[in-house]
């Protein structure tokens, strides 16, 4: 059985999926019944699960300990962004495997089909990462690969893709901020998107990724295009996460320890993340 994780609020179900009646969700192997009353949503612990309560934020139902104060309720770093959609994706793999996949972009040319760069542009890849006691910060930058979708994001051929993210562990989540820029002038393109992805362990072998998509358009004169962006950004986000979900069963058996792996420089955040995963999130040795 996984250690209990309800000392943090975790997103467990899109609000739209509990319009009425009851739904059963599983968090770290513990089952809860969620039901919507006239004014609020209630949580009922099933089996041996400890009591929990639900709050509703950002179009999702979030589950946490019954005693968690209101100050512990989730707050997504969305300043300056508009929420444009949210969705869940099931990963048939343990938390650390799904999480590792989202802790590096090295796999982009092989697993993904739109965002990121081509194998041919690897020599132009710029990568930075920083390890901190409570988080990791990572940046990737490289030429955006050609795609039929680039016009929808107001990109021009040759633009560079920039993905910058911060991962925290209360609960496990990463906020990715993606933008594009002209490599000659360094001027950013109008669309900036942000995805806050929460990594939620359902069981020891299955993880849900709940994603909150955000976007902004600059300058203000282009805001009339926002209806297009509202559709394109979540669509692309869902596709990219779907690419990862399709690949992940191939590596689902990867051990938590990196013993024996030939890690490279892009894996530096993963090692630190595992340390923080153990000490900050699980607060228990996985051994």
């Amino acid at each position: 059985m996984l250690p209990a994780v309800t000392r943090f609020f975790h997103p467990v179900l899109p609000s739209r999926e509990l319009s009425k009646g009851e739904a059963v969700v599983t968090l770290a192997g513990r089952r809860y019944g969620l039901s919507r009353g006239r004014s609020e949503v209630g949580a009922r612990a099933l089996g041996d699960a400890p009591p929990a309560r639900v709050c509703e934020r950002y179009g999702y139902l979030w589950l946490g300990d019954e005693a968690l104060p209101a100050s512990a309720e989730p707050a997504i770093d969305d300043e300056g962004f508009e929420h444009v959609g949210c969705f869940g994706a099931r990963f048939e793999a343990p938390l650390h495997v799904a999480f590792d996949n989202f802790s590096e972009d090295e796999h982009t040319p092989w697993v993904h089909h739109f965002l990121g760069w081509r194998e041919a542009d690897l020599s132009r890849l710029d990568f930075r990462s920083e390890n901190h006691p409570d988080r990791t910060e990572v940046r990737y930058s490289a030429p955006q690969r050609p795609s039929v979708w680039t016009p929808a994001l107001l990109l021009l051929p040759g633009d560079h893709f920039h993905n910058q993210w911060v991962t925290r562990f209360d609960p496990v989540r990463t906020v990715y901020t993606l933008h594009w820029f002209d490599p000659k002038t360094r001027r950013p393109r109008p669309v900036v998107s942000r995805f806050a992805i929460y990594f939620v362990p359902e069981t020891a072998g299955r993880t849900w990724l709940h994603t909150f998509a955000m976007a902004r358009l600059e300058p203000a004169s282009l805001r009339f295009l926002m209806p297009v962006v509202r559709r394109v950004v979540p669509f692309l986000g869902r596709n990219e996460v779907g690419d990862d979900a399709r690949w992940i069963p191939n590596v689902a058996g990867t051990p938590f320890s990196f013993e024996g792996m030939r890690l490279g420089r892009f894996d530096a955040p993963l090692v630190h993340n595992h340390h923080l995963l153990e000490t900050l999130y699980w607060q228990a040795s996985m051994g």
Binding site: V111, W247, N250, T254
Partner: peptide, 25 residues
């Protein structure tokens, strides 16, 4: 794959005849 233990049989054969891992190439 010695990198992150992905199965190489899930990869692809490159034009130069080398076997490429489907995860990180």
């Amino acid at each position: 794959c010695p990198h992150r233990f992905a199965p190489l049989s899930a990869g692809r054969i490159r034009p130069d005849g080398r076997l490429a891992c489907g995860y990180h190439g």
